[in-house]
Design a protein around this nucleic acid. Structure first.
Length: 797
DNA sequence: AACTGTGGCGCAAAAG
DNA sequence: CTTTTGCGCCACAGTT
């Protein structure tokens, strides 16, 4: 009777659903793990699919002379009642392409994998223990093929909702299909918090939140601390998030500040930041400082902004301004140290509120710039969108590789501690100094990935000793077997071919939405493919191969040498070259033939990247400036585009470069003299003199008292916190002694007259300008002489 | 004792 | 990932 009933029920409830996968998480319920697949159904409902059957496991790689049966029994003997070893199975797998015998050891609770791993590793007859360090939800995603931002068609049964803030909860019965299609509309919310910071860097135990600003498709919302107590602010904000129910929560440095502060502040006030889709779950800090929110994607856009190299100080206002999302002129601009003063003054308080909303709005609007690319990177790498911005390039590549390894029945190597070992890199050609007319830049397309594919490079294709059918790398002599395809080649081929196909398809697509999607996919594929070489030479990489990385650069050097040889053979003059490019001058009508010749003879694609009407080089490599065919001025490598020179020096150099290219050296000298005189007359803003540097280490680690380190220490002692990786802006003031003794954080200097003008002229403007003009015979005295006016002479003494 | 020149080294940031 | 550049500190040697 009971059985009949169940059968009947199952038939009624079993159904098919289509769900767009947002994220994964897992929980251990009643001593067994459950995987949550959070998503949006075809009908637009927020749903979760539970997978209760999947179990954690790892592999033990056997020595050749071991008997699997005996070892399996021995391993089973390690079983603990809290999480028994449920299965030990002998499997044929591949390790670096070689067939191997492994035991697959399965348990119940994910945390026990580590415990069993350590015990199994000590047993006799075990060569290595593998795949024990893969996160459980990741393990599931790899094995099941369920990937974020893909659709999942599945047979499910409806389940109890029990404390989940979704429309439906299903139990997974069977995966029917995983496919890519247009994503549903995702509800997106941006937020930003402002904190009382009168006593320097805010402390969550002491300083209240003064306002939380929110921006959504429906516009702004604000939670303001009116009574000096922020309990209600936090409570209202949490309620708002739960009610609005966003799929994506955007912030700017929200992993580094907002979530940290909010959770600490809340816990010190006995509140819970219960904003997840599971009741009672708080944002939890996972790997690399990222905060996970159950069922939602917590995306910190700062991670994407790091990729915008043109902007040196990656503050929200700078990034939003540069990308044209919110121009600085159209928003409230406040420095962090002005907040307490403005907040305390009833007449100025409104400015703080506007400032907060401008930040929330900027964050919200930045989504259109960053998310389409992020979506594509998620689809390709399989790394959930919320982890993507924090993950380094290496980890993005590795996620893709791990998924592919599973498909190929390859074991995933362990992460190893390796000592640093350097190897030779790309070839840089000595530039021909001076001004050149009509120079063409030829670029090998995706040189390193193409070389990896062409010569089948990788740790699994490397042959030590004799080899009949191998490619041999020049200079270093490493050999790689020609067939079958190695791990890297197989994956790279797919990426490069897909990119080619997309570029082809783009020629016919007119739909704007589809064009954008393909454009971003194409970019993401390029970024991923180009990251493979760097990944292979990354000490932390699971598929590290020094020999591989060394061979890639060696073939690269050979390729560029051959290209140069062919170009000069055709009568071209080589002006410069770096790694995968050559700058040539000569009969431009023959460039097309040169391109064809190189491409066919070297079997690597080269193309015209740029044409310069006029270009100049100094004696230095990696530095030049040119006027393109489109009358744009390109500046490469010089101070003008570096983040660690003051704006004034950069502007002066930019001016000199432009004038030199367009009007000639004499005119440029005149301009430079004018600028120097202006500074001597103190006609500048303090902002233009700030020198920004990042702190690559924590302050104690520095061995020398470099100026930026001293400036950071001064900032620290006045209450400002600068962490490792942060940026410090400083100016040089008058006084005696080393530069280090005369630096001060820019926000601590209010009086323009304290500035050491001589430093800025002699160590910033003159060197920057001379870098361009010196090759033309201009000396320091030509710039400084004859321009000193009496007035400033007296004022400076 | 105070200054100047030099070369090594630490450090950051660019190109590819 | 390597290559390249350049500033400033630091120690040292030689000079005034």
């Amino acid at each position: 009777m009971k059985k009949m009933h169940n059968y009947y029920e199952t038939n009624i409830r079993a159904m098919e659903v289509d769900v767009f996968v947002l994220d994964f998480s897992y929980d251990v319920e009643e001593r067994s793990p459950e995987i949550y697949i959070w998503g949006i159904s075809r009908e637009g409902e927020r749903v979760v699919i539970l997978e209760k059957e999947f179990r954690p496991y790892f592999y033990a790689l056997l020595e050749t002379d071991t008997d699997p049966e005996t070892l399996a029994t021995e391993i089973k003997g390690l079983s603990k009642p809290q999480s028994p070893i449920t299965d030990v199975k002998l499997l044929e797998k591949k390790y670096y392409g070689e067939p191997v015998k492994t035991l697959r050891i399965q348990t119940i609770i994910p945390a026990y994998v580590r415990i069993y791993r350590d015990q199994v590793a000590k047993l006799k007859g075990i060569r290595e223990v593998l795949e024990a360090d893969i996160r459980f939800y990741m393990r599931y995603s790899i094995d099941s093929g369920v990937k974020p931002f893909h659709w999942l068609k599945a047979e499910v049964e409806e389940d109890e909702l029990g404390g989940l803030r979704v429309k439906k909860c299903y139990k997974l019965k069977k995966i029917l299909k995983i496919y890519e299609a247009n994503p549903p509309i995702m509800r997106t919310m941006a937020f930003d918090i402002e904190v009382y910071n009168k006593y320097g860097f805010p402390d969550p135990k002491r300083d209240p939140i003064i306002v939380i600003g929110v921006w959504t498709a429906e516009g702004p919302r604000q939670f303001i601390n009116l009574r000096g107590d922020d309990i209600e602010v936090i409570r209202d904000f949490v309620k708002f998030v739960v009610d609005y129910d966003p799929d994506i929560i955007l912030g700017y440095n929200s992993n580094g500040f907002d979530w940290q502060y909010l959770t600490e502040r809340a816990s010190s006030r006995n509140l819970k930041v219960d904003v997840g889709r599971k009741v009672g779950s708080e944002p939890s800090q996972g790997t690399y400082g990222h905060f996970s929110i159950m069922g939602r994607l917590n995306v910190d856009l700062l991670g994407f902004a790091e990729g915008v190299e043109e902007v040196k100080v990656k503050s929200l206002d700078n990034i939003a301004d540069y990308l044209g999302v919110v121009p600085k002129a159209s928003r409230v601009n406040l420095e962090w140290y002005q907040i307490p003063e403005y907040w305390a003054d009833p007449k100025k308080r409104d400015t703080v509120l506007k400032y907060n909303l401008d930040d929330a709005r900027s964050t919200y609007l930045l989504k259109d710039v960053f998310l389409p690319f992020g979506e594509q990177l998620t689809i390709i790498s399989g790394l959930p969108l919320d982890q993507l911005p924090m993950a380094s390039v290496g980890y993005r590549v590795e996620w893709l590789l791990m998924r592919e390894a599973y498909k190929f029945n390859e074991l995933i190597p362990n992460r190893l501690e390796r000592p640093h070992e350097s190897y030779k890199g790309g070839l840089v050609i000595e530039p021909k100094p001076g001004i050149h007319e009509n120079v063409v830049v030829l670029d090998f397309t995706s040189m390193y990935p193409s070389i990896m594919v062409k010569y089948n490079i990788g740790p699994d294709t490397l042959v030590r000793g004799e080899c009949r059918d191998c490619w041999t790398a020049p200079e270093v002599g490493y050999k790689f077997r020609k067939s079958p395809d190695g791990f890297y080649r197989r994956i790279l081929k797919v990426l490069l071919e897909e990119r080619k196909a997309i570029k082809e398809k783009l020629k016919d697509v007119t739909d704007e939405y589809e064009r954008r999607r393909l454009e971003e996919r194409q970019k993401a594929l390029k970024v991923m493919a180009n990251a493979f070489y760097g990944y292979m030479g990354w000490l932390n990489a699971r598929w590290y191969s020094k020999e591989g990385a060394e061979a890639v650069t060696a073939w690269g050097r050979e390729t560029i040498r051959k290209a140069i040889e062919m170009a000069s053979g055709m009568g071209f003059e080589i002006i410069y070259g770096d790694t995968d490019s050559i700058f040539v001058k000569g009969d431009l009508s023959k460039v097309g033939r040169l391109v064809e010749e190189i491409t066919s003879r070297l079997d690597l694609e080269i193309k015209v990247d740029k044409k310069y009407k006029r270009i100049f080089f100094t004696e230095n490599k990696k530095r030049y400036a040119g006027l393109t065919e489109e009358n744009k001025i390109d500046i490469v490598g010089f101070e003008a585009i570096r983040g660690d020179w003051c704006e004034l020096a950069k502007e002066a150099q930019r001016m000199v470069i432009e004038t030199t290219l367009l009007k000639g050296v004499d005119e440029a000298v005149k301009k430079a003299k004018e600028i120097i005189m202006r500074i001597r007359r103190r006609e500048f803003n303090l902002q233009e003199l700030v020198i920004w540097k990042s702190l690559e280490k924590s302050l104690e680690e520095y061995e020398v008292d470099a100026p930026h380190v001293i400036a950071a220490k001064k900032a620290m002692s006045s209450g400002y916190v600068i962490m490792k990786g942060g940026k410090i802006g400083y100016v040089v003031v008058k006084g005696v002694g080393k530069v280090s003794d005369r630096v001060e954080p820019y926000f601590m200097v209010k009086d323009k007259n304290r500035i050491d003008v001589d430093y800025y002229v002699d160590k910033q403007i003159v060197p920057a300008v001379l870098r361009i003009l010196e090759p033309f015979g201009i000396k320091e005295s030509n710039l400084k002489g004859g321009g000193m006016d009496i007035l400033s002479y007296f004022r400076d003494r």
